[in-house]
């Protein structure tokens, strides 16, 4: 059985950028992805990193209780490749992410913000 060592670090939308900037070092940590979860009333966003040396270690910067219209800062000047995951947040959750255009995955005629709880899965 797997044995993940998950370390959760609580952040808010205001201080997430500073916290990651202070902590992140590309020679020590590996950026995995950004993930959002819709709880039904609000959104939880995780910035996920792993360790290059320590086994099974996963660091999660978690911001909870985010409104659907809140402004989400981009970390692309700290982690160069985070833009793709940020574009996905803007597209599939319909969130207001800094500098993120819509339409990476979705077409104009398809349903918008499909991964929100309220959106039906069928056409």
């Amino acid at each position: 059985m797997i044995n993940p060592q998950m370390e959760f670090i609580k952040v808010t939308l205001e201080n997430v950028k500073e916290t990651i900037k202070k902590w992140y070092d590309p020679n020590k940590y590996h950026y995995v992805t950004i993930n959002a979860t819709d709880t039904g009333e609000d959104i939880t966003i995780d910035w996920i990193f792993s360790d290059l040396k320590e086994k099974n270690k996963i660091y999660v910067f978690r911001a909870e209780n985010i409104g659907y219209k809140d402004f989400i800062p981009s970390i692309k000047d700290i982690v160069k490749i985070s833009w793709l995951a940020e574009f996905e947040l803007a597209d599939l959750f319909g969130l207001n992410v800094q500098d993120a255009p819509k339409g990476v995955f979705l077409e104009k005629e398809s349903i918008q913000a499909p991964l929100r709880k309220e959106t039906k899965w069928e056409k």
């Binding site: 590309p26 290059l52 099974n56």
Partner: peptide
């Protein structure tokens, strides 16, 4: 390292990263 590359592409550049070694599944 800066771009967080994974898999054979990272290993071809000399980065020692492999989920088989870093994560026991």
């Amino acid at each position: 390292l800066e771009y967080g590359v994974v898999g054979p592409i990272a290993r071809a550049s000399g980065v020692k990263t492999d989920a088989r070694a870093e994560y026991e599944y």
